[in-house]
Design a protein around this nucleic acid. Structure first.
Length: 809
DNA sequence: GGGAAAAGGTCAGTGA
DNA sequence: TCACTGACCTTTTCCC
């Protein structure tokens, strides 16, 4: 192989034989970061340092890295950089010492086993030059006096001084199986009394350099380029050994450990599972340059699950809806092909025997970071609970790809491909779940076809918040993609998407909502406006209290915090409940004023909606203060904890189970303060409440607010929106669990009864009343709102005599 | 201090 | 429009 020499820059210039790039084989322009590389690989290594942990190769780390293919796989390119000895601590500055240069030039005449040499003198030149510079670079990482402080130091291996074999070894074993590399022509001195012509002092670290390195070693034991690591303790070590100590591998391990588990509680048992209408079958796509996510199939949400709402699972029989119309909380679009099994594999995928019926190609198509992907057997999902979703589908593997949690030697890998036709074929297969990551998360060029956007957009949803770019606790593990996408997100946050100049009528009716449906642009603008209006109102109502509680909540959530049971008596509790109920009802009424169309409803419907939503809204507002694990309710105003054991004095087990369950589901969504406001509003205007008259208008209002929330999520955090919206709709579908509780336990009683006795919610109203009749009238509570004649809508729609459900805060 | 060599910055080109 | 690449340039470091 012919080698192009660097162009001499002046008279008498002795060109240093950098030879070929040790990474890709192109012409090297110098010794960069410890290895002779081309400008491209130099720049690539420099750019990759902060983000290399995002690189993953799913093809066994065996990709060819040549000038033509080097941009196809970042992981392999970076790996080769490291193998070549590139590292920040291998940096050298200044000219190459004359002696080294002469040795390198002398080496031209010798033989070589270098893979690029093919036994020619030029090859030897490359090898010796590389080794010579490698000597110099890595020598700087050694002890200042060059003495061997390694207990096992001796021979070629020496402490802190690069072993030329190691780099050559790494280099050659990656490429071919030729004979081992030759011994170095000029091993660097390990001791100051070496006979080597090059003065050891030339390679000494400056005092400052040495100090820095000592610090580095303290923070990252073994944080050296593999060339120096390879010989610690004497003798050569394998490349794998080098990697074990290299920060590249170390940090991957740390990250993999850190990212174990997911915030959505995968692996926990869900009382109910829904089936069908899920993510894998729904088509989302990115639209326009804004990055907004929207459904490709338009606005309709006609898709329903098989029975309209719940699908029985093996574990629980879902509740039947007691309400009339059931809002459709599916994403719409293509019906999922994934069925939920009743036995065995909880992934929702058919058994291997079922696969055989479809030609043995059934499986889970998983796209991963870096653009790779493949078809996996259903067993894959069974062995990866962290990527399993409650409905049996598989999460995108992007997170695993980013965190290094994924084993590229996945035994269940059936087929590699991200080819569009393969994915489409997989989608057509009724037994196949398809999960494709967000195109923007692909690590860039991978030499593979980009997954078509019209198939699906998915993205990781469970990267811990403290790893996201804006979080204070973030570290360098934040990926370049996250940086990039976060930049995009921030840009969108400040962007006035729409709605700024839109005016929503004071009393929008069916006609108005019908017009919106015909005008997508207007609908988007109004949706954005709706989001803002409701969020602003919510901030007015709850903001101050929420801010005041933040400190205590943080304190209570800290590991050091030891909660103390409330010392309040049941009578105290009744007083607290009394005050909180009054406040709660006022707030709900206030919030309802901000919902477009609510004022248009007649008084009876307003009344019905308000009186039935109190528990729902309270759940949303208080979910974050219900910590299932601690089984505590935190009353932030009074800085008091109420242990569940204590609460059981008032509330039945199944009621508490439901409350904590719903709270967990809400918390898992990690909705923002504003998004929670929209969720409250959606629950206020539920068309499936009993006794409603104008169901059509209520449905229109409900859907409008729902769309506003989805739009708000998609606009404010486009990366998370598909998964978040999906999870959100799943939450709404499961909300009927709380409805049952409310109907069974809350509706039959009122606060006056609750306030009077040591009885439990869950007993019948009559029994409660009979108990209460035995007690005095102490604490008798009037449900307040009925006497306050709270007005909704410019004073023309009085909501009087709210027969408030008993609410326990 | 001159000059060599590498780090780091810049920006046009490229592809998605 | 954006991210990425890499050739080219400037700055910094250090040998002579």
């Amino acid at each position: 192989m012919e080698m192009d020499m660097p162009i001499p820059k002046g008279r008498g210039f002795t060109p240093f034989p950098f030879g070929q790039c040790q990474v890709c084989g192109a012409e090297a322009t110098g010794n960069h970061y410890g290895a002779n590389t081309c400008e491209g690989c130099k720049g690539f290594f420099k750019r990759s340092l902060p983000v290399f942990r995002t690189f993953r190769c799913f093809f066994g780390n065996k990709c060819d890295v040549t000038p033509e293919t080097r941009n196809r796989c970042k992981a392999c390119r970076f790996r080769k950089c490291v193998e070549a000895g590139m590292a920040l601590d291998a940096v050298k500055m200044g000219r190459i010492p004359k002696a080294v240069k002469e040795h390198a030039m002398e080496g031209k005449s010798g033989g070589s086993h270098h893979r690029n040499s093919s036994g020619t003198g030029l090859g030897r030149q490359i090898s010796s030059a590389s080794q010579a510079t490698s000597h110099m670079a890595s020598a700087r990482t050694g002890s200042p006096d060059g003495a061997d402080s390694s207990p096992g130091g001796g021979g070629m291996g020496n402490n802190g001084i690069s072993s030329p074999e190691s780099s050559a070894d790494n280099f050659s074993r990656d490429g071919d199986n030729e004979s081992p590399p030759p011994p170095p022509p000029h091993p660097m001195p390990r001791n100051s009394n070496s006979n080597n012509a090059t003065p050891v002092s030339d390679y000494r670290l400056t005092e400052e350099q040495h100090r820095r390195q000592q610090q580095q070693q303290q923070h990252y034991p073994g944080m050296n380029a593999p060339t120096s690591l390879s010989t610690q303790g004497g003798g050569m070590k394998s490349m794998a050994d080098n990697y074990r100590f290299h920060p590249y591998a170390r940090l991957q391990q740390q990250q993999a450990h850190h990212f174990k588990g997911d915030r959505n509680g995968n692996g926990v048992s869900y009382p109910y599972q829904s089936a069908g209408g899920g993510v894998s079958g729904d088509r989302l796509q990115t639209g326009g340059s804004s990055g907004l996510l929207y459904r490709a199939d338009g606005e309709q949400q006609q898709q329903q699950t098989k029975n309209g709402q719940w699908q029985p699972t093996s574990r629980n029989q879902p509740p039947q809806s007691r309400m009339m119309p059931v809002p459709d909380y599916t994403l719409g679009g293509r019906q999922s092909s994934v069925t939920t099994t009743t036995t065995g594999d909880q992934t929702g995928l058919k058994s291997p025997s079922a696969q055989s019926e479809t030609g043995g190609k059934s499986g889970v198509f998983v796209a991963m970071g870096g653009g790779g992907g493949g078809l996996f057997s259903p067993a894959f999902a069974g062995r990866h609970p962290e990527v399993r979703m409650p409905n049996g589908r598989i999460r995108a593997m992007a997170d695993q790809a980013i965190t290094g949690d994924f084993n590229e030697n996945e035994p269940d890998l059936m087929e590699h491909s991200t080819a569009p036709e393969k994915i489409k074929a997989a989608m057509a297969n009724s037994e196949t779940a398809v999960v494709v990551m967000h195109p923007a998360l692909q690590g860039g060029t991978h030499g593979m076809p980009v997954v078509p956007r019209d198939i699906m957009v998915f993205q990781p949803s469970y990267v811990p918040q403290d790893k996201l770019p804006d979080s204070p606790g973030r570290d360098s593990a934040v990926t370049a993609n996250h940086h990039r996408l976060d930049t995009k997100r921030r840009r969108m946050e400040v962007q006035d998407v729409s709605g700024g100049g839109v005016k929503i009528p004071a009393n929008p009716g069916m006609k108005y909502f019908a017009e919106l449906a015909q005008n997508p642009a207007l609908k988007t603008a109004v949706g954005e406006k709706t989001f803002r209006v409701i969020a602003a109102k919510n901030a007015d109502i709850y903001g101050e209290e929420t801010r005041a509680n933040e400190e205590f909540l943080r304190e209570a959530m800290s590991a050091k915090y030891v909660p103390k049971d409330s010392e309040q008596t049941p009578q105290d509790m009744r007083d607290v409940l009394k005050d909180r109920l009054i406040t709660q009802v006022k707030r709900v009424v206030q919030l309802s004023e901000s919902i477009p169309g609510f004022r248009t409803l007649n008084v009876d419907d307003q009344h019905s909606l308000l009186r039935t939503c109190i528990l729902d809204v309270w759940m949303v507002h208080s979910a974050r203060f219900l910590r299932d694990k601690q089984s505590y309710i935190l009353f932030l105003e009074t800085r008091t904890h109420y242990a569940r054991k204590w609460m059981e004095l008032f509330l039945t087990d199944d009621f508490l189970d439901t409350v904590f369950f719903i709270a967990d589901k809400i918390n898992a969504l990690d909705l923002s303060f504003d998004e929670l406001a929209l969720l409250k509003s959606i629950l206020i205007v539920r068309p499936d409440r009993p006794g409603l008259q104008n169901i059509a208008l209520i449905t229109a209002i409900h859907n409008h607010v729902l769309e506003a929330l989805k739009l708000g999520i998609a606009t404010r955090r486009p990366l998370e929106s598909p998964q978040l919206i999906y999870d959100f709709l799943e939450l709404l579908k499961g909300w009927s669990v709380l409805d049952l509780m409310q109907e069974k336990y809350v509706h039959p009683i009122d606060l006056s009864q609750m306030a009077q006795g040591p009885w439990k919610i869950g007993e019948t109203a009559s029994s409660a009343a009979s108990v209460s009749s035995k007690s005095s009238d102490a604490g008798t509570v009037s449900p307040c709102p009925d006497k306050q004649q709270m007005l909704v809508g410019e004073g023309k729609a009085p909501v009087a005599a709210l027969k408030t459900p008993a609410i326990e805060t």
